[in-house]
């Protein structure tokens, strides 16, 4: 537990001093235990999400950084993207099986900004309505199907 808090303290410091472009930490959201953060994110300019504002919620378990953070979009504006469900869950392999402890809040934010930026058509995932009805509250409990991995 102590090592998890020490690392989160360092990450917090680094995201405050050198935030990735369009990303800022919502100071009020970070409690003393550091287990839950809210990050404000802006759509990158020159992309479909330019000018939009999003909020990402990070939840860290006591096994962080060996265990990935639980990352979801929250708030009134959930980006319309083929890999973002309308309940805020994100289908992104680095958030589950491809997680590595060398990744950080900063690199996850950067990945999500990149994921949004590379989008060419704003649409929900094809199975959105079914998924949203049936999924667990915690996206990490979803057995994500990165189906085309084998192809």
């Amino acid at each position: 537990m102590a090592s998890m808090q020490k690392r989160l303290q360092r990450e917090l410091k680094s995201i405050q001093t050198e935030p990735p472009p369009g990303v800022s930490i919502n100071q009020n959201s970070v409690g003393s235990s550091l287990t839950q953060w809210i990050v404000d994110m802006e759509g990158a300019s020159g992309t479909l999400y330019e000018g939009e504002k999003f909020q990402l919620q990070f939840k860290f378990s006591s096994k962080y950084p060996f265990d990935s953070p639980e990352v979801t979009f929250i708030g009134p504006n959930i980006p319309i993207h083929p890999h973002v469900y309308s309940n805020g869950h994100i289908c992104l392999s680095i958030l589950t099986e491809d997680w590595s402890p060398a990744l950080s809040v900063q690199s996850v934010c950067l990945s999500i900004v990149s994921m949004l930026s590379s989008c060419t058509e704003k649409k929900r995932p094809p199975d959105n309505s079914l998924y949203v009805k049936t999924c667990s509250k915690n996206p990490k409990k979803t057995k994500w199907w990165y189906h085309d991995e084998k192809v």
Binding site: P82, H83, C91, L92, S93, I94, D98, L103, S107, L110, S111, S114, M115, S118, P125, P126, W144, W145, Y146, H147, D148, E149, V151
Partner: peptide, 29 residues
């Protein structure tokens, strides 16, 4: 559905993802 792996190597960000339609895309930023 969306398999993204990211590696930051000496300033080059390698972004690899798979999704439904195009099986494998590499983007290098």
């Amino acid at each position: 559905m969306f398999d993204l792996s990211l590696s930051l190597i000496e300033g080059n960000l390698f972004l690899k993802y798979n999704h439904h339609h195009c099986c494998l895309d590499y983007h290098r930023f």
